[in-house]
Design a protein around this nucleic acid. Sequence first.
DNA 1: AATGCATGTACAG
DNA 2: TGTACCTGCATTG
Length: 280
Amino acid sequence: MPEGHTLHRLARQVTDVFGDQQVRVGSPQGRFAEAAAQLDGTEVRGAETWGKHLFIDVGGDRHIHVHLGLYGSFDVHDLVSDVPAPVGEVRLRLVRVDGKAYADLRGATICALVTTAERDAVVARIGPDPLRPDADPDRAWARISRSAAPIGTLLMDQSVVAGVGNVYRAELLFRHRIHPLRAGRTLRSGQWQAMWDDLVVLMAEGVRTGIIDTVRPEHEPEAMGRPPRDDDHGGEVYVYRRAGQPCHVCGRAVSTTVLGGRNLFWCSRCQPAFRSRSAR
DNA sequence: AATGCATGTACAG
DNA sequence: TGTACCTGCATTG
């Protein structure tokens, strides 16, 4: 499920499995059929990700632009003995010419053939991506420090920071004890620096493992004597989708509201709206 | 079987 | 601000 780490992981997989390899390209579902026919038999150079946008370089100033949206998936299968008939609506299928690897794209919000200039235009309109070594967190700070919008909204705005989704947003704010509705411009630059550094580490861990796990060692189930989570997508989290359940740190019921059409989660004790006098 | 919801975005009005 | 996109999975009946 797609936040930035998923797309970066995919870029790595596509490069590993199809890089410098000839591929058969198809669109069993049909919506990418014209481009697929044009690309069939081409050689994949590699793939790269900015934020949640994946670009597969197929040479000749052409890239397959993929965005998974909310429920898209791109499943890469390597070391297979045969390539099965497509299951469901497969918009894009890549098959390595040796027949030992294939990948299926389903449910994506974007699957389009673009030029390098078009790719660069996409990259230019999104904010710095914590998973890219050349990313400049100051670009995000320039927006955050001037904005009256809630930090919870700014973190999800891909033109401010690229790659953060609903899980990393909720978890990052919890880890930094920041109330999600606090205006961006009330943050101090040191707070943003700490949040960015944390994102770099957390998201890189997400790329490595393929899951989002944001809980510090001292709050892990084993350390605290609580049962591990079993009803989610793998990783331990502090507040994401835990509305009404006790905070792992203070025990208060996790709060939730809808902000900009997305569910938001936080702990009202660990993430106070205003700094309390006693905390000074 | 039917319904609802989701780690996302774009566009209409 | 609401809705469409369009898929898989959990929940409901």
